[in-house]
Computed example of a mutant assay.
Amino acid sequence: MLSTTLKSYLPYLLLLTLSTALYVLPTTWQQLLEYQADAIQHGELWRLLSGHLLHSNLLHLLMNLLGLVVLMLLHGKLPGRLAVGWQVLLLSLSTGLALLWLAPDIEIYVGLSGILHGLLCYGATADLRQGYRSGALILIGVAIKVGAEQWQGPDPELSAQIAAEVAIDAHLYGAVSGVLLALLSWRYIRRQ
């Protein structure tokens, strides 16, 4: 029988494993899974989910997996919240749909960063509900980061390192989706 700690970390570990496994797929297979706005508009709806699990290069993958591990350690063991699997599914859909409708200039998107921003903001908002004041600091920090990205645009050095333009809109939509998801499940988040 799995321990409670391992059960709470399992969705993060599955996401980490799946992202890593998809990274080693042949490029032609990855292209069938990446977020492509035109393909989604023609009915290939799986791309709203699968595009988040792909990465442009190894550094991009490692940065996102490190972020996932940090989130797992930060929020993984906290009870009384929407299950992480549901968070990832709902954040993938909401971020993907927001990109499709609100950022039509983004034709192709890959990476976990939108989901990571959403998980962080969901966790911080849930922290507030559960009486942890650190949630406010996290939300303020994310708001400053995302606001600076929207004001200044993507970081060209980071874009060069990950061999893709940083999708700052995915960060914004993921963060907003995370807060909204937590607010929608507010009454179900148990207070500590």
Rank of each mutant, 00 (worst) to 15 (best):
S3K: 14
T4M: 09
L6Q: 13
S8Y: 08
P11C: 07
L13R: 08
L16R: 02
T17Y: 08
T17C: 13
T20D: 08
T20C: 12
Y23P: 10
V24D: 05
P26T: 14
P26M: 13
T27I: 15
L32D: 13
E34C: 07
E34L: 14
E34A: 06
Q36T: 12
A39D: 09
I40H: 06
H42W: 02
G43D: 12
L45F: 15
R47K: 15
L48S: 05
L48F: 06
S50M: 11
G51E: 03
G51R: 08
L54Y: 03
L54M: 06
H55N: 12
L65S: 04
G67N: 09
V69H: 06
L71C: 15
M72K: 00
L73Q: 13
H75Y: 15
L78W: 02
V84A: 01
G85N: 08
Q87L: 06
V88M: 02
L89M: 07
S92Q: 12
L93K: 04
G96N: 07
L97K: 00
L99R: 04
W101R: 05
D105A: 15
I106F: 01
Y109A: 10
G111M: 06
L112P: 00
L116M: 08
L116G: 05
H117K: 02
L119Q: 05
L119I: 11
C121N: 15
G123I: 04
T125V: 14
D127R: 12
Q130T: 06
G131A: 07
Y132V: 01
L137F: 13
I140W: 04
G141D: 08
K145N: 11
A148K: 14
A148Q: 11
Q150A: 10
W151L: 14
Q152K: 10
Q152T: 07
Q152D: 03
I162W: 03
I162K: 02
A164S: 13
E165G: 06
V166R: 02
A167Y: 02
A170E: 09
Y173C: 03
S177T: 01
L181M: 09
L181V: 07
Y188W: 15
I189W: 10
R190E: 15
R190G: 04
